[in-house]
């Protein structure tokens, strides 16, 4: 894949300079190591720092609903300018799902699609090539990743550091876009979802033991909720005190209830961008929960979230012939 940075910056500058665009959200070099930060570009000049590299893991679609909605001052006009957003394949599914749920309207966003040949798992990368203070650059190079640091280039095999979500990715090309950057990439052979399969092969007690160990680690920071592009309820049950759906105390019982509730709320909505798992400070494999549910939804209900903007939301619709083999 040849993602031309020049073309990206030129397009971004053009979009950001448009009258109808409030700001453009993209990626820029972080302050150190493998960090990549979100960039909010308001004018053409700001576009010069934008990048798109295998380190751009973050799903920027979350900023669409995260943006603060200030009340309109008396006599003022509401700011209904658009937000421009750079998306990878998985991020574009989040945008589509937001459209399905009417979280955003189509004319509120300008989607700039970046076909993505797969991003790296920064934790895995840092394990093998320790992070230094100096900001590192990365590039796609055919079947490899190219790590550029201190004027030195290191070739790293793709499979060595490819993020788990990308191994299982079926939509590397944006499913929705106004402007497409570069050429579409070819889909690749999917890896087996070993993590989920291994758990499915255990008996119920084995799974209970596994998840007990995982949920016990949870510190209830709610990072998984905050980073999720599809967790945007203004009145979240986790913040509610009356009625208290999930107690705030950090113990195994409440942690389990919280994690099940979180996963369930994303059933038929999760687009598997893997952000929750990436940001989890306790390294809980939340992706396994999400992928398991996504697979059930796909196999049993023949539904895939974030693909068709005209679809009915999964949990707010039904088919008369939904499976009911579990009913007594």
């Amino acid at each position: 894949m040849k993602m031309d940075l020049e073309q990206l910056r030129k397009t971004a500058a053009e979009v950001a300079a448009r009258e109808e665009v409030k700001y453009l959200v993209g990626w820029k070099q972080g302050t150190y190591g493998y960090r990549v930060a979100p960039a909010f570009v308001e004018d053409a000049a700001g576009a010069a720092e934008l990048i798109f590299s295998p380190l751009c893991t973050a799903n920027l679609a979350t900023y669409l609903t995260l943006a603060e909605q200030l009340p309109v001052p008396r006599g003022g006009e509401p700011d209904d300018r658009k937000v421009a957003l750079m998306v990878k394949g998985c991020d574009s599914r989040a945008v589509t799902q937001l459209l399905v749920e009417k979280g955003i309207e189509r004319d509120e966003v300008v989607v700039i699609g970046c076909p993505c040949p797969g991003v790296v798992d920064a934790a895995l990368l840092a394990e093998k090539y320790p992070e230094t203070e100096e900001p590192a650059e990365m590039k796609w190079d055919g079947e490899n990743f190219l790590l550029i640091r201190g004027g030195e280039e290191t070739k790293i095999a793709r499979n060595e550091i490819l993020a788990e979500k990308c191994r299982l990715c079926r939509y590397p090309n944006p499913v929705v876009s106004d402007i497409m950057l570069g050429e579409e990439v070819e889909t690749w052979d999917l890896a087996e979802d070993e993590g989920v399969q291994e758990l499915e092969n255990r008996d119920v007690d084995g799974r209970a033991e596994y998840w007990a160990e995982q949920f016990d680690k949870c510190v209830r920071c709610y990072s998984c909720r905050n980073v999720c592009p599809l967790c945007y309820c203004q009145d979240c049950i986790l913040d509610r005190l009356n009625p208290t759906w999930v107690n705030r105390s950090v113990n195994f019982s409440e942690n389990t209830a919280f994690n099940i509730a979180r996963a369930f709320h994303l059933a038929g909505r999760c687009i598997e961008c893997g952000e929750c798992e990436r940001v989890c400070p306790a390294n809980i494999p939340l992706g396994k929960l999400n992928r398991k549910l996504a697979r059930e939804v796909r196999d049993k209900y023949d539904f895939e979230p974030g693909v068709d903007p005209d679809a009915e939301p999964f949990q707010a619709s039904f088919k008369p012939d939904d499976p009911e083999d579990f009913i007594l």
Binding site: V204, Y210, A267, E296, Y301, F318, P323, F326
Partner: peptide, 20 residues
């Protein structure tokens, strides 16, 4: 119909996290 869909998913999820 909605209940069937939601609670069917819940049953799958609970089974996956180790509830009999």
């Amino acid at each position: 119909f909605y209940a069937r869909r939601r609670l069917g998913m819940l049953k799958d999820l609970m089974e996956f996290v180790g509830v009999d």
